[in-house]
Simulated assay, not measured.
Amino acid sequence: MTFVWPDGSWMDALAFTWTLVLWFVYGRFADKLPPDEVAPGNLNQMMHQLRRIWMRRMLDRPERILDSALTGHSVSSTTFFASTSMLIMAGLLGVLGRAGDAHAVIQSFGFTVHSSELMFELKVLGLIGLFMIGFYKFTWALRQFNFACTLIGAAPLPPVEPGSGARFADHAARVMSLAVVSFNGGIRSYYFAMAWLGWFIHPMAFAAGTGIVVLVLLKRQVKSRSQASVAEYYEATGR
């Protein structure tokens, strides 16, 4: 039995494959946390090292109210995006329920490529899948932030032995960074969903949009003003 891509468009298949490749390649680059002794190669890795410094300095404070408040802010942001993902999925399911009408509206635009109703439904299902990935990423990030809150609550009080403090800071920072990795993965699904909308216009618009999204994300990781400021401070701390 031979699989036939709906509408028989090789451009659709190419654009979809291109997006999958960029999704996994960029995710591998942005989400990898290096060993603590390895110099960071992007903004996310620098932030991980700065979280280690944060956790070490927290141990010198008898009261950790500030640290708990900062972690709680991250929890609130993650909860907001998780809820928003659910609402978007509900809206897209509504579109899928009236796929015939929605498809007719899209096809009435003069700048969209012709596609079948089946292909339209697959594109909507793909969008739902992206936001579903985002939802699971956000909820896992939420749980990990809760783990980080527990670690902060269980942190040893000063004076702390140097070896014990360093171990705590390394583990607490890694748990928090893993939570941020999941959160970033959820945000990334929103960026890729914006590019996915180009597929309703033309497969090449979809492919180009995905490429632009990844270039923007790469620039923010290695060549943005925020990255430069964080790198400057990271170097000033003496690593």
Rank of each mutant, 00 (worst) to 15 (best):
S177A: 05
I187L: 13
F109K: 14
Q144Y: 01
A179H: 04
R167I: 11
W196Q: 14
I187E: 02
G163Y: 10
H171M: 13
Y136F: 15
L118E: 06
L178G: 03
S115D: 13
L127E: 15
W140V: 05
A179R: 05
R98K: 13
F168M: 10
A141T: 03
F192W: 00
F111I: 09
Y136E: 03
F145V: 01
H171N: 05
F120H: 09
A148M: 01
G110L: 14
W140H: 00
R143W: 11
I133Y: 12
F138P: 00
S115N: 15
A205C: 15
Y191Q: 00
I128H: 01
Y191L: 00
E121K: 10
V175I: 09
G91V: 08
F109R: 15
C149H: 05
A141D: 07
E117W: 11
P156E: 04
S189M: 15
N184I: 12
T150A: 00
T139L: 00
M176L: 14
W199H: 06
R98G: 03
E121V: 02
F111Y: 12
A99N: 08
H103D: 13
I187W: 12
G97T: 13
I133W: 12
K137Y: 14
F183Y: 15
L96K: 09
V113G: 04
V180W: 12
F131S: 04
I133G: 09
F138R: 01
D170E: 13
G100W: 13
L130G: 03
F111D: 06
A104M: 02
F200L: 06
V105G: 02
T150L: 10
A173R: 08
A195K: 08
Q107F: 10
F135W: 14
Q107I: 12
D101H: 11
A193H: 08
S189T: 12
I152T: 01
M176N: 02
G129L: 06
F168R: 03
D170L: 14
V181R: 02
M132R: 06
G165H: 02
Y190Q: 07
V113H: 15
H103Q: 07
Y190M: 05
V95C: 01
R167Y: 13
F206T: 05
M176F: 13
L157N: 01
A141N: 03
G163W: 11
F131R: 04
H103V: 07
W196Y: 11
P156Y: 04
L130F: 05
A193L: 11
A172I: 10
A90D: 08
A193E: 15
L96G: 03
S115I: 15
I106P: 02
A179D: 08
G97A: 11
M194W: 07
A195D: 08
W140L: 07
G185H: 12
S116H: 09
G100T: 07
G126N: 12
A173P: 00
W196P: 03
A166S: 06
P158G: 00
M176T: 00
E117N: 03
D101R: 04
H114G: 04
F206R: 12
L92M: 02
S116I: 09
V113T: 10
L142F: 03
I187R: 12
I133S: 09
A90I: 13
P158L: 04
I187T: 10
F192L: 11
L125S: 04
D170N: 09
V105R: 06
R174N: 05
D170F: 12
S108Q: 10
A173H: 07
G153S: 01
G91Q: 08
P162H: 02
W199K: 08
G163F: 05
